[in-house]
Simulated scan of single mutants.
Amino acid sequence: MLRYVLRVGLASVVMGGLMANAQAREVSTAFGEVDVPDAPTRIVTLHEGALDTSLAVGVTPLGAVTSRGVDTVADYFGEYTDLDELQIVGVPRETNIEAVLRLEPDLILAPSQLPDEQYQLLSRIAPTVVPDADGLTRDGWRDEARLYAQALDKEEELERVFGDIDERAASIKSRIEEAGEGGNAYVVRWMPGGPMVMSAELFATGVLAATGIEAEDGGLVAEGRPHSDVLSLENLSQIDGDWLFLATLNEDGEQALEAARQSSAFERLDVVQAGHVVPVDGQVWSSTSGPLAAQVILDDIEQALLQ
């Protein structure tokens, strides 16, 4: 069925693609140099960071993949676009190629982990931009965002957005230092099976560091991994720092966290006794990345530490 759809549908897509690419720019991607249209108008994003970046620079995509743990995109995107108008074309790591084809995109923004087999299919539909990521780094999301912005011809707009983020983070850091509310922190995603410590090399931990709060993982996360194995409640003392940012992805995680709050192991933590446990949205803190998500994280930090 997929081969048939590609054969039939590509005829119209190719015609539109030839027109869009009459004037093209070249960008460097994980799959080599790719020609992208000068003014793309029909964009599909297959990565939350690509959707975030697009909206941050004023571009509304036609389609996107879901966020982790839910059947739509993260709630915070609703402040920047009508979610009812956004077509869902898959889930993380599994794209519905036929759904992408139906949207007749002139540009596809994909994740760095895109398999070669999917790239070969998607690149027949439209120029497909895949970042060349090299492991987990706190600032890797900025490199990804810059590539997406380059493909969208919105590089100057993105740099202004970055400037706003950096200026705000520096202001929050100064205020935290004046208030004496800094220290270290753990970011933990609470799943139905229990808590997982997020790596200190993730997007959210980098945003925390920019405000002067050093995120740690207690040596519980293997190199190159985004999070630890699930911790038992008896081992919660290993994440007892100055601050604890607790992320959940959906209602199941929230229910599991609420049950954990009733346990003596949780209540005995110094961070709990100090009132420094901060519930946060796991879709933002432990799943997505991008300029808009960075502002949400800064909102959470400001509210928790300065209000």
Rank of each mutant, 00 (worst) to 15 (best):
M1K: 09
R3V: 13
Y4V: 13
Y4P: 01
R7E: 15
L10S: 12
V13G: 02
T29D: 10
V36P: 05
V36Q: 05
P37N: 01
A39T: 15
P40E: 02
T41K: 15
I43P: 07
L46S: 05
H47F: 12
E48K: 06
G49H: 03
V57G: 01
V59A: 10
S67W: 00
G69P: 00
A74S: 11
D75Y: 11
D82G: 10
Q87M: 13
V89L: 02
V91I: 12
R93D: 13
N96W: 00
I97Y: 06
L103I: 14
D106A: 05
I108F: 07
Q113G: 09
Q120A: 12
L122C: 04
I125V: 14
G135W: 13
T137N: 15
R138E: 13
D139K: 03
G140I: 08
W141I: 07
R142C: 04
R146F: 10
D153E: 15
K154N: 05
L158K: 01
L158W: 03
F162T: 02
F162L: 10
G163E: 13
I165Y: 08
E181C: 07
Y186H: 09
V188F: 05
G193Q: 14
V197T: 05
S199P: 12
L208V: 04
A209L: 08
E214Y: 01
A215K: 03
E216F: 04
A222D: 15
G224K: 15
L231G: 09
Q238M: 06
I239Q: 01
W243L: 08
W243H: 15
A259L: 02
S264T: 14
D270C: 04
Q273P: 07
H276M: 06
G282K: 00
G282V: 00
V284G: 01
S286K: 01
T288M: 00
G290F: 04
L292W: 07
D300W: 09
L306N: 10
Q307N: 12
